[in-house]
Design a binder for these strands. Structure first.
Length: 825
RNA sequence: GCGGGCGUGGCGGAAUUGGCAGACGCGCUAGACUUAGGAUCUAGUGUCCCUGACGUGAAGGUUCAAGUCCUUUCGCCCGCACCA
């Protein structure tokens, strides 16, 4: 018979809810701790990845509570987004209805897992009381010049019928639906994250509690590079083209120049030239290529001559101006100088179009010939063919050249970032409306703060066409201009859902405030998040945006921290048969099924035990069975002992036998290990294995000691400690057993046990005796023996004496409590 | 190509500071209890030519001692990738 998990779990979930066990307030003399898991998109059902994420977070939250912290552990819903609209089109359900019923179901599932959330602080980004403040955030950014509108070539997903941020385009495909992303020339809203590029980069150094991997990814994404901008005059035209280069030392080797086909100056440059028609065709062709095929490393470089020439300011050489596929408009200046001898891309381009290859840097002791080179020389060397800079090492020349460019006013030192401004407008319905009104008289007018929220209308038709469905809502579109009162039209684009999730961790601090997004006091008390837990897929997107928002709000004085997350744990994926669980592979295990069959405690235990949190986890039905068996084992041993410990006096007892001491040792070793594994390393798998060893020791004790010799207070202590150690992992069974052994009050409100170093000090230890590094014998020795005495004891056994007989003992190394190594010759 | 990570039994994984490799769990084997066992308990379980030898992807090295440190190398996973 197994224990009745279903009854127990329901009972305690009800108890926790009715007693508001996990509700927290700021005013508390305990130190605060903010434990946060990434809130989910309400797709309708929890998956194993969620279970893993929230189980990990729950261990942390419950453990910290038991260790005397005032723990904030909230949950909410990232509830705007495309799937709601797709469902509306497919099933004819309104996104609002669809989303809220999903939330209801997932909330029930979360509660069935017994996660210790303060549900009073629940937020949903699609609720007007939340998006009011998302819109408020937009207005603050707008007010401070950090939100702006511009026309540009933007990523366009034809399937989602919306624009996408750079971060949402993965390998040229839509991050969400995987269809090919194209380009469209549209007017769009942007957040000026580039203003914060340097700080976002610099402050990565502050993130000591973040995984190296995530920090490297962010730093690569920001992509700082140092170089110079250099001005080239167009021959017989009054136009100057500026290039960005990281290699100003190769300036004398420029043999052509390339401009991006979309560059605004191109039309003027080619106008009336014999090459105009060819150029226009090329531009047209490039527009229809998506970015991945256009810019992939494998795509052959392709270009056309514009007919124009530019003049190299350092040597007055006239070089041809091309347009080419490999030059991107939105990086640097969109114009690149071609130095075939020292850049591989330029080299390939030059060979294809028969452009000269001029060597200006020679490797030491070698002579390169531009005509016969087979690849570009990109390493360091000595300057040649570079006028006054000849003979210098190229590094030194680089510095000098930049200085000289600045003096002559033909160039400047320049730092560039790969990071682009964040495109936040979406032509979709189910998002926070951008609070802006267009007025014929006044232009772009932000909606006044007191008029927020701009409510999403309900009279909307979902067409799936490339226009915001809001455009069709008469009640929404027309609005009076807040400035002049004339009728204007509202912005019909909504905000990227990543805007909503960039500040939700702040809202949790003060979730029902309707006067402001949060009070400074609340945020100052709880922030920063002490431990953030979520999937590594958000390493760049969400985590970078959240950092950006925090910095902006810090600058505006709304928060006192400039980094939101002190420690970050990126959990691994849940796999089945070596692959990520997915519908298409048919390897999905539903959490609900597992909870129904074995209970939430078993589900949680397995997921925590199978692998350390940051590694991928292979699902195993048999492993789940094993965890269920273990909990039954725990149940039975506590049941068995209940009678024996009933009238146990508190504290001391008679002299301990060997078995008593052994049990005491294992118990304290378990307390030590579990404590350290949770607090220092988050290695829940080894923490759980230590508890298993403790339980095994209890069974050993039962096997070896007759009932009459039981020490009631020792066993009582053991039962209490066992239950306390289990509490963060398997909260329901722990709570039930806690009361079963006659305790009162929630086990989760108890103090975390501490270990007794005395119990861990054994008087005798077994050590290995090695000869030349190989174990040849084992001996029991008193624990306090000196190294010398250990060596002596080791050489006294019959077996060792025999083995060293007639040999010369060169050296004896003794490691206290571990081993003795005798080196013989 | 650049950056990050990982290779340990039949499987998931331990080994935290260089100190007995394989904790714990799964699986497997045997025994006990039993009408029965897919329940439970107990014992065993890296490999082999088994008083010993070998063994942490491979090859070298440092050391009394190496999964752990160093050098070389192979394989896998993840991220970025024409960024001038």
């Amino acid at each position: 018979m197994s224990y009745n998990f279903s009854e127990i779990e329901q009972k305690w979930q009800k108890y926790w809810e009715e007693n508001n066990c996990f509700e927290v307030q700021e005013s508390d003399d305990r130190p605060k701790y903010y434990a946060l898991e990434m809130f989910p998109y309400p797709s309708g059902n929890l998956h194993m990845g969620h279970v893993r994420n929230y189980s990990i977070g729950d261990v942390v939250a419950r453990y910290k509570t038991m260790n005397g912290y005032n723990v904030l552990h909230p949950m909410g819903w990232d509830s705007f987004g495309l799937p709601a609209e797709n469902a509306a089109m497919k099933h004819g359900v309104h996104p609002n209805e669809w989303t809220w019923s999903n939330i209801e179901n997932m909330k029930r599932q979360l509660k069935e897992l017994g996660i210790s959330y303060d549900w009073n602080r629940e937020v949903a980004t699609c609720h007007p009381s939340y998006y009011k403040w998302t819109q408020w955030m937009f207005l603050q950014l707008y007010k401070h010049g950090l939100a702006y509108k511009k026309k540009s070539f933007v990523n366009w997903c034809p399937s989602c019928a919306t624009v996408l941020a750079n971060e949402q385009v993965v390998n040229g495909k839509c991050e969400r639906c995987k269809s090919d992303v194209g380009k469209k020339d549209l007017e769009q809203w942007f957040f000026k994250i580039t203003d914060y590029a340097q700080r976002l980069l610099d402050d990565i150094d502050k993130l000591a509690g973040w995984p190296e991997k995530v920090k490297v990814m962010q730093s690569n994404w920001i992509g700082r590079s140092e170089g110079a901008e250099v001005k080239f005059k167009v021959d017989s035209m009054d136009i100057t083209l500026t290039v960005y280069t990281t290699r100003p030392d190769t300036l004398f080797g420029v043999s052509y120049m390339v401009i991006a086909p979309e560059h605004p100056l191109v039309r003027e440059l080619i106008k009336g030239m014999p090459q105009e028609k060819e150029c226009l065709e090329f531009i047209h062709k490039m527009q229809f290529l998506n970015e991945i095929t256009r810019t992939s490393n494998e795509t052959e470089k392709e270009g056309v001559f514009t007919g124009r020439y530019v003049i190299n300011p350092v040597n007055n050489k006239k070089v041809p101006l091309y347009m080419a596929n490999y030059v991107l408009l939105d990086y640097g200046t969109g114009i690149v100088m071609g130095v075939p001898a020292h850049d591989q891309r330029d080299f390939e381009f030059a060979r294809k179009y028969n452009l000269p290859v001029e060597v200006v840097i020679q490797p030491e002791g070698q002579k390169l010939d531009g005509a016969t080179m087979t690849e570009a020389f990109t390493a360091e060397g000595i300057m040649v063919n570079s006028g006054e800079y000849d003979g210098l090492r190229n590094r030194e020349a680089m510095v000098k050249i930049i200085e000289d460019l600045e003096k002559k006013n033909i160039g400047t030192r320049k730092v560039n970032y790969r990071l682009r401004d964040w495109l936040i407008s979406r032509q979709r319905y189910w998002g926070a409306p951008i609070p802006v009104i267009y007025c014929d008289e006044c232009g772009i007018v932000p909606v006044p703060e007191e008029d927020l929220p701009v409510i999403l209308p309900t009279d909307v038709v979902f067409t799936g066409k490339g226009e915001s469905p809001l455009k069709g809502s008469e009640t929404f579109v027309y609005a009076k201009c807040p400035k002049c009162g004339k009728m204007g039209t509202r912005e019909t684009d909504t905000m990227d859902t990543f805007v909503c999730s960039s500040w939700y961790f702040l809202r949790y601090c003060d979730p029902s405030n309707d006067k402001e997004p949060f009070t400074k006091e609340a945020v100052d008390y709880w922030m920063p998040v002490d431990q953030y837990i979520g999937g590594v897929e958000h390493a760049i997107l969400h985590l970078l945006y959240a950092r950006f928002f925090t910095k902006v709000l810090y600058d505006l004085g709304y928060v006192s921290v400039d980094e939101p997350f002190t420690n970050l744990l990126t959990q691994g994926m849940v796999l089945k048969d070596g692959a990520k669980m997915s519908k298409s592979l048919g390897n999905v295990v539903s959490p609900e099924e597992i909870v129904n069959k074995y209970g939430a405690d078993t589900a949680r235990l397995f997921i925590l035990f199978a692998s350390p949190p940051e590694k991928d986890l292979e699902w195993s039905d048999q492993g789940v069975e094993g965890c269920f068996r273990f909990l039954n084992r725990v149940w039975r041993i506590v049941e068995d002992m209940t009678e024996a410990i009933k009238d146990a006096p508190e504290g001391g007892t008679d002299a301990y036998t060997r078995e008593d001491k052994e049990l005491l040792y294992v118990m304290h070793a378990a307390i030590k290990k579990v404590t350290e594994d949770i607090s220092e390393r988050f290695n829940f798998n080894t923490a759980i294995s230590a508890i298993m060893e403790f339980v095994n020791a209890l069974y050993q004790y039962k096997e070896k000691v007759i009932k009459e010799d039981y020490k009631p207070s020792l066993l009582k202590d053991a039962m209490e400690k066992l239950i306390l150690l289990l509490a963060p992992f398997v909260p329901h069974i722990a709570e039930e057993l806690w009361h079963k052994i006659g305790k009162e009050g929630s086990v989760h409100k108890q103090k975390w046990p501490s270990y007794d170093a005395k119990a861990l000090a054994r008087d005798e230890v077994e050590i290995a005796v090695q000869i030349n590094g190989k174990v040849r014998d084992r001996i029991m020795i008193p624990a306090g023996l000196s190294q010398q005495e250990m060596g002596k004891a080791a050489m006294e056994t019959a077996r060792i004496r025999e083995l060293i007989n007639g040999k010369e003992v060169v050296k004896v190394i003794a490691v206290p409590k571990k081993l003795v190594n005798i080196v013989i010759r």
